[in-house]
Structure formats: C-alpha cells, structure tokens
Amino acid sequence: MLPPYAETLGLYVDPDCADGCRLVMPYADGVLGRPGFLHGGAISGLMEMAAIVALQRALAGDGGGRIKPINVTVDFMRGGRDKLTYSTGIVTRLGNRVANVEATAWQDDAAKPIAAARMNYLIVRG
C-alpha cells in the first residue's frame, strides 16, 4: 500500500496503533543528514507520507479520489536523534477539490515534535 519512496525511507505502519495510520521511520544511514542527526528531508518525507495515508483514509470514506500535492510548509523544531520517529497526519478539512492536512513528527513524546508540516492537496474525484 505504501509507495516505493516510503520503502526507501524504511517506513512502516505502526502495528501498535489501533487506527492504523501512524507511520514509523527507523533510524538508519539512509535518512541521516549531518552526523548523528536525521536529515530534514527524510523527516519531511515521513510527514508527507503520513499526511497522504491520513488523506487516503478520509477519502476512502468519502467517495474516493486521486491526490495531487500542491504545497508543503515544514517547521523544524528539534534535531532527530538515534531512535524511532513517528508521524500522524490530520485532515483538517476535506473539501470537494482541496484538502488541508497537517502532520507532526516526534520521537519520545508526541507533545514535543521534532518537526511539523501543513500541506494542501488537490483532490480529483472519480
């Protein structure tokens, strides 16, 4: 269900999460930026995938449709360290043509995100 890029980041759906839409990114050389820290692009990629998973779930219960990314704005708050990183997307508004989605990424504590993103997606209804 996750695309090849998600696999390239090593992402998987968190089996401990009941609603099945929390993604996990393991710490690995392929997601590292400066030594010892996650690359901002990998954290952003994780949040974009979490946003898309959340939006696909919301769309599935609303007639379905294709998703096209319009934009993303990312705030980087803390360095990502040598541990698992989690992300969940939240669909703030699902319209006919546009969806507003937010996502955060965190490690130890969801209340202390390492990054946050907000995205606009174009919805192409079938």
Binding site: P3, P4, Y5, L9, H39, G41, A42, G45, M49
Partner: peptide, 15 residues
C-alpha cells in the same frame, strides 16, 4: 510516490 504513473514522490525534491 505514485506507482500508477511512475511519478517520483514530493519528498525527494524537498530533500
């Protein structure tokens, strides 16, 4: 990012 079209995901461009 989209297997049907073969288009790359947005994440690598951001990186």
């Amino acid at each position: 990012g989209d297997t049907d079209s073969g288009v790359i995901a947005s994440g690598p461009i951001l990186s």
